[in-house]
Design a binder for these strands. Structure first.
Length: 320
DNA sequence: CGAATTTGACCTGCGC
DNA sequence: GCGCAGGTCAAATTCG
């Protein structure tokens, strides 16, 4: 999918007032910049009276504000596109899921209802949440963990045989089992960061692609994310609500695996939280934008020009 | 030596 | 009720 068609991340920052042309090749631009900047700002200083200068600054401020507004709109559009696409995906998967469920299976009920994830098109979630009070009294141990189930797909390096998914939390392994439908063993983890945290995690390699780890999270953490407290920014994973979003660094660059398999019908509040109103989502998108901005040589050049220009301007005004 | 992991035994739910 | 399969427990083992 071509995400670049949604939003043009190479932002046109309208830096023409500084005469740093975006068409100038980067390397040439950087060397030319020094030559170009001095006369530009000398002209800028000498030609403008203080009133004009104030006006220009106000104009600049307005322009920046306008761009800020545009960015916000772009972000909104992007989020809406994401939501639309997501709902389409849910429709598609629910149709497929029904087909699969119609097929007679000798497998256990629980397996067919929420564990048909072998082909990476998973319908996970709360299909069992309709259990009656009678049932829940029969199995009190399960009632807590059945409410929040999410999946994360994490690509690992080829030689990596460990079943560890680095999502920032501390996990204690308490079991491993080879399941019938997948020759790769499934590892069972409990969250050990907080003693009372009920969250469990199952990690198993995908039967289709053994380099992909499928992590199934059950329950919700009753404590803040460890990386938020300890080393913010050191961990490149975050959790969007109960939906994990895992970033792993590969040789070709960061791979981001989002769990989009939450059923639309269940947990409507969750679904809406995935939208533009979720601060985590906005933070994540802003980080993505910031990342793409800093990678853009034109933006970097413009930033250098703007900063050096301001400094030059300030030095001049101090001297005068 | 304490914490973490491994692994076989046991428990539980489900289909027949 | 029996067998199967997934999930959990806990003693043994490994690791830092």
């Amino acid at each position: 999918m071509d995400y670049s068609s949604w939003v043009d991340t190479s932002l046109d920052l309208n830096i023409n007032s500084l005469r740093v042309k975006s068409e100038v090749p980067v390397d040439a631009g950087r060397s030319e910049m020094a030559k170009e900047l001095k006369p530009t700002f000398m002209d800028f200083q000498t030609k403008l009276s203080s009133k004009e200068e104030t006006g220009a600054l106000v104009e600049e401020l307005n322009r920046v504000g306008e761009e800020n507004r545009k960015l916000t709109e772009m972000l909104t559009v992007m989020c809406e596109s994401y939501n639309a696409l997501r709902s389409q995906l849910m429709d598609f998967m629910s149709k497929n899921g029904e087909k699969e469920r119609l097929a007679p299976s000798k497998k256990r009920k629980s397996e067919s209802s929420h564990n048909n994830n072998d082909n990476n098109i998973a319908m996970n979630g709360n299909s069992e949440s309709s259990s009656t009070d009678e049932e829940s009294s029969k199995k009190p141990r399960e009632e807590v963990i059945k409410d929040k189930i999410s999946k994360a797909y994490v690509r690992t390096e080829a030689g990596d045989t460990s079943l560890t998914v680095k999502d920032g939390y501390q996990w204690r392994k308490y079991g491993q089992k080879v399941t019938r439908d997948n020759p790769c063993p499934r590892a069972y983890f409990k969250c050990s960061f907080a003693p009372s945290c009920p969250v469990k995690k199952k990690v198993q390699r995908s039967i289709d692609d053994q380099s992909v780890l499928v992590a199934t999270y059950e329950g919700e953490h009753n404590h803040p994310h460890p990386s938020m407290e300890a080393t913010p920014g050191s961990n490149r994973s975050l959790t969007l609500g109960s939906v994990p979003c895992t970033a792993s660094l590969a040789s070709s660059g960061p791979t981001i695996t989002l769990d989009l398999t939450k059923p639309k019908s269940s947990n409507d509040d969750k679904s809406s939280r995935l939208g533009k109103d979720t601060p985590e989502v906005q933070k994540f998108l802003v980080e993505q934008m910031a990342s793409s901005l800093t990678k853009d040589p034109n933006f970097t050049a413009a930033l250098v020009a703007a900063i050096s220009g301001r400094m030059f301007q300030q030095n001049k005004s101090e001297k005068w």
